[in-house]
C-alpha cells in the first residue's frame, strides 16, 4: 500500500485508506516461526490448544517472506546475530519486532557471557519487550495485544520515509566462509589465485 506509506501529507483518501490498513494489519499479525531457545517452547505453547493464538488472528508462518512480526525468543549469540538480522531483512515492510524474554531484552541469565549479545535491540528496532524467563503464554498474548494496539493507533502516512530515517539495515556481507565451500567442493581446493570467485552457492538477493 505504497500510497499511504509514501504519502507526504494526509488527505481524505489517504486517511481513509490508512484507517482500513490499521484495522487490517492489527488484526492479522503473522509472526515468523523462528525458534531460538527456551522461549520458543512457550511461543509454541501459546500457539497450541490451550492458549490458542489463532483466535487473535496470529498465525505462525515458516517463511519470513509471509510474516510481519518477528518474535525473538531467546538469547542472540554472536553466531546467530547475522541469521536473525537476515530473517528480519527478508520480511516485508511494515514489520514489527517483539523481544520475548530476558535474554532477548538484555542477555538475561547469560548477560556476562562472552558469546551473547546484550539484547536484540542492539541491532533490531524492537517494538514490544516481554519480560520473563520465559514469559508465560499469557504474557506473550498480552504483549501481542499491546502490539496490536500500537499498530491500530499508529498512522502509516509517511511511514516509509520514517522507517528509512529510523533504521537502515547494515550491510551483511552474508557469504559462506571459503573454508566450508572448499570442503563441499563448491570452490576448488586451492582458489587463492582466483580471488574467491564463486558461481555456485551465491546468496540470492535479500530484498
Amino acid at each position: 500500500m505504497g500510497i499511504v506509506d509514501r504519502a507526504e501529507e494526509a488527505g481524505f483518501i489517504t486517511t481513509t485508506l490508512d484507517k482500513l490498513l490499521r484495522w487490517g494489519r492489527s488484526r492479522s499479525m503473522w509472526p515468523v516461526n523462528a525458534g531460538i531457545a527456551c522461549c520458543s517452547l512457550e511461543m509454541m505453547t501459546t500457539g497450541a490448544g490451550r492458549y490458542d493464538f489463532d483466535r487473535f488472528g496470529i498465525m505462525f508462518r515458516s517463511s519470513p517472506r509471509q510474516a510481519d512480526v518477528l518474535i525473538v525468543p531467546g538469547p542472540i549469540t554472536k553466531k546467530m546475530q547475522p541469521i536473525v538480522q537476515r530473517v528480519y531483512n527478508q520480511m516485508a515492510e511494515p514489520r514489527w519486532v517483539i523481544a520475548m524474554g530476558s535474554c532477548a531484552i538484555s542477555g538475561g541469565a547469560f548477560a556476562d557471557s562472552y558469546n551473547v549479545l546484550p539484547g536484540c535491540d542492539t541491532f533490531l528496532p524492537v517494538d514490544v519487550y516481554i519480560p520473563g524467563c520465559p514469559p508465560r503464554p499469557e504474557a506473550l498474548i498480552y504483549g501481542c495485544l499491546k502490539l496490536k494496539e500500537q499498530i491500530a493507533n499508529t498512522s502509516f502516512i509517511g511511514s516509509a520515509a520514517r522507517n528509512k530515517a529510523l533504521y537502515v539495515p547494515p550491510d551483511l556481507g552474508e557469504e559462506w566462509p571459503d573454508e566450508l565451500l572448499r570442503q563441499f567442493g563448491v570452490l576448488p581446493a586451492d582458489d587463492s589465485s582466483e580471488g574467491g570467485s564463486r558461481d555456485v552457492g551465491e546468496v540470492r538477493d535479500e530484498g
Binding site: 531460538i36 531457545a37 531467546g74 538469547p75 549469540t77 553466531k79 546467530m80 541469521i83 547469560f110 556476562d112 557471557s113 562472552y114 558469546n115 551473547v116 566450508l180 570442503q183 563441499f184 567442493g185
Partner: peptide, 26 residues
C-alpha cells in the same frame, strides 16, 4: 549443509554453535 545429488544426500555437515551461550564458562 547438505551436498545433494538430485534428491539424494551425498554429504551432510551439521553446523552448530548458534546457541552457544558459554554456560560452562559462566
Amino acid at each position: 549443509m547438505l551436498e545433494m545429488a538430485g534428491e539424494t544426500v551425498v554429504t551432510a555437515k551439521p553446523v552448530i554453535g548458534y546457541l552457544h551461550r558459554g554456560i560452562e564458562k559462566l
